[in-house]
């Protein structure tokens, strides 16, 4: 069976600077570089990375929300037309800031009817109530405006709006940012329930590895716009191959002072995208850097369900 979403060698750039930059031929900043992955029907995949890793840019490019894209994106076997109208129905995007992604003057009812009006679809009677029920909100909420909703409620309205046109892929950008732990669980459970019930595929962008461990089938770790490690969630957590993955995993605050001793620290900060490091792009921060890393970019290697780009992968025992 063909995967629902298939991405090959995707590059995403954004225009920068003015006329001078154009003359110098430096008017584009490449943010995502050479990304390839497949997403199956009903699968949840997490894009993980720190700020500036390009995870949001990648997700937005797939949803056709900006960026100069080159490479191949296939949806349901056919090339994806990112500027057409069909993509708006097939792929739904849930924005990070739930309250401010809802038009402030409209009521929840108007917000939920909008997708139908936009696509000229006859509004099915009672659909607002059905959608609200689907995301676990009382029907009374339909007459409220965004600023009258709590963070969790606004997030649910965002989900309901995303689901209105029965998309096949839902992309959620930091769906739990700014939510309390108990509400965070509710939102994640909701997405997961909908995935099983409606057969959706989920692409979740997050920097919170603790939720990835529970909800994602597969994960991809991004650094400077590249996938440095991808694979099934459990094996990646059990045995990270790339030092960056290992460092992210070990950056989880813990109570046991003994366990802190094995923590992996990175040097310095994320380098700018304008001057990408030569060789392995992670070498400037890698605690295990060797000469080869500074000169030669590592190629993709595979180890069972996990693939990674590193010359000197971590041993299995380090984080186990």
């Amino acid at each position: 069976m063909t995967p629902l979403l298939s991405v090959r060698n995707l590059d995403v750039s954004y225009p920068v600077g003015g006329l001078m930059a154009k003359l110098r031929g430096a008017d584009q900043l490449q943010i995502v570089a050479g990304v390839s992955f497949d997403l199956a029907r009903g699968e949840t995949m997490a894009l993980v990375g720190e700020s500036g890793s390009g995870k949001t840019t990648l997700a937005r490019a797939i949803a056709g929300l900006g960026g100069l894209v080159s490479g191949e994106i296939r949806f349901d076997g056919a090339p994806l037309n990112t500027s057409g109208r069909q993509i708006r129905r097939d792929i739904a995007f849930i924005f990070q800031d739930a309250v401010s992604s809802l038009s402030p003057r409209l009521t929840v009812r108007a917000l939920l009817r909008e997708p139908f009006a936009i696509h000229g679809i006859q509004y099915p009677e009672g659909e607002v109530e059905r959608l609200l029920r689907l995301v676990g909100l009382p029907a009374t909420i339909a007459e409220r405006r965004p600023h009258e909703l709590s963070g969790g409620q606004a997030r649910r309205v965002g989900v309901a709006r995303a689901l209105a046109l029965k998309p096949r892929l839902v992309i959620a950008d930091e769906p739990t940012a700014g939510l309390d732990v108990s509400v965070q669980s509710e939102v994640l459970n909701l997405l997961n329930d909908l995935r099983t019930r409606l057969g959706l595929s989920l692409l979740i962008i997050t920097h919170n590895l603790n939720i990835v461990r529970h909800i994602a089938d597969r994960m991809a770790i991004m650094y400077l716009g590249r996938f440095v490690e991808t694979g099934d969630t459990a094996p990646v957590f059990a045995h990270p191959h790339h030092p960056y993955t290992a460092a992210l995993l070990s950056a989880n605050p813990i109570i046991d002072p003994e366990a802190r001793k094995t923590r992996l620290y990175l040097k310095g900060e994320v380098p700018g995208l304008v001057r990408r490091p030569k060789g392995c792009e992670f070498h400037s921060r890698c605690p295990f850097v060797q000469d080869l890393c500074r000169s030669t970019p590592p190629s993709l290697r595979e180890d069972g369900p996990v693939s990674y780009t590193c010359h000197f992968p971590m041993e299995a025992s380090v984080n186990a």
């Binding site: 669980s185 459970n189 605050p253």
Partner: peptide, 16 residues
């Protein structure tokens, strides 16, 4: 209900 403190991965997370 803190996902960090739940050792075994679970699809459905507890909430208060």
């Amino acid at each position: 209900c803190d996902p960090a403190q739940i050792a075994e991965p679970m699809r459905h997370l507890p909430s208060i």
